[in-house]
Design a binder for these strands. Sequence first.
DNA 1: TAGATTGTTAATCGATTAACAATC
DNA 2: TAGATTGTTAATCGATTAACAATC
Lengths: 207, 207
Amino acid sequence: MAKHEKISEAVVRRLPIYLRYLSYLQQVNVTTVSSQQMGMNLDVNPAQIRKDLAAFGDFGKKGIGYDVNYLVENIRQILKLTEEVRVVLVGAGHLGHAISNYNAYMKDNMRIAAIFDSDPQKWGKEVAGLQIQPMEEMAETIQAKNIKLAIMTIPATAAQTVCDQLIQAGIKGILNFAPTTIRVPKDVRVHYADVTSNLQSLAYYLT
Amino acid sequence: MAKHEKISEAVVRRLPIYLRYLSYLQQVNVTTVSSQQMGMNLDVNPAQIRKDLAAFGDFGKKGIGYDVNYLVENIRQILKLTEEVRVVLVGAGHLGHAISNYNAYMKDNMRIAAIFDSDPQKWGKEVAGLQIQPMEEMAETIQAKNIKLAIMTIPATAAQTVCDQLIQAGIKGILNFAPTTIRVPKDVRVHYADVTSNLQSLAYYLT
DNA sequence: TAGATTGTTAATCGATTAACAATC
DNA sequence: TAGATTGTTAATCGATTAACAATC
């Protein structure tokens, strides 16, 4: 595969969407799909889909389309989901609980492998089969379990400090639900998932 | 204001980020800010910030910068947050609860004004001061309370049906947490907030 | 005045889409 | 073979950044 073009962030954001639809097709026993059919269902231009996929290899057959199983396998590989991806969650509040219990990740080879909170009252309590641990154990656990991804569901005031600790411990990607921008080194990626900002930009389009 | 250029989605996504930082500056009694200082703190190019803001009006003073209060007021207006924006939430599961209780919206003039769920067991139960209502009452409530925005925290299987009902009832913007693409008319906006897709695209960047 | 910073233009960069030869 | 659909090139479109005159 790998044609070593540079892959844009926009492409990487679409790959999971493709994967999701293709997994659905597997479930309903569809074995072949065209870029046109995918485009229709995902609201993406078919040429876009072909270009996105072609950047990683020649997965399709001219005149036929794409083999669903083969494509699923390849996108999984591209997204590094072929072996279990462990994720740490920081902040066992309402949102943290909700995300921990929503274990739809599992089927995609992602798993929350540790949960931390600063509140002593919560330590030892079980969430989704894991005991909430004190922040003090964070670095050690992350290194011991070789965790590279983190989800932060903590207040904005704590975000930068916690983020610094996570990076110190070896985290390379953060999904940040805290309503604040965080500064990170170039080799660490942050995706923002703040609900308020997301809603506010929706409000712009009203009337 | 309004120089009737077409405003890109990227700009609209940044406005809430600007607003958040400016609100923070208000809290710490900073009255003036430059595009450079904002850029440093938000990781956005200062020219970008100036261009974004200039699209809506001349908010700054050459040689001085931007008056924080004045800018907050104007961005609020641009984002239509000057009067209360009511939001409906569909799906009172873990995630729905978490989002309802996380009422940081309030200070930004947004408020969850009704909550619906299909499970009869949940009807009448209180969440964040609201009683969970049956889906059957959705259209009526949305129209009665003149609600234009919706948050969907429901399973993927129900997403398209619920989304159709919401649009039928007059909803114009949807924040969709369900892990599926939904089809909507051109005048309705959807923002996607699925945790799994977001995490999966992060995984791509590992090693 | 000198220094700072905006608003805006022009240059660059990147992403999307259309079109079509290649080929199953 | 005829029809369908890919992979890819070229054209278009849009977004970001640099640079600087205007001016506080």
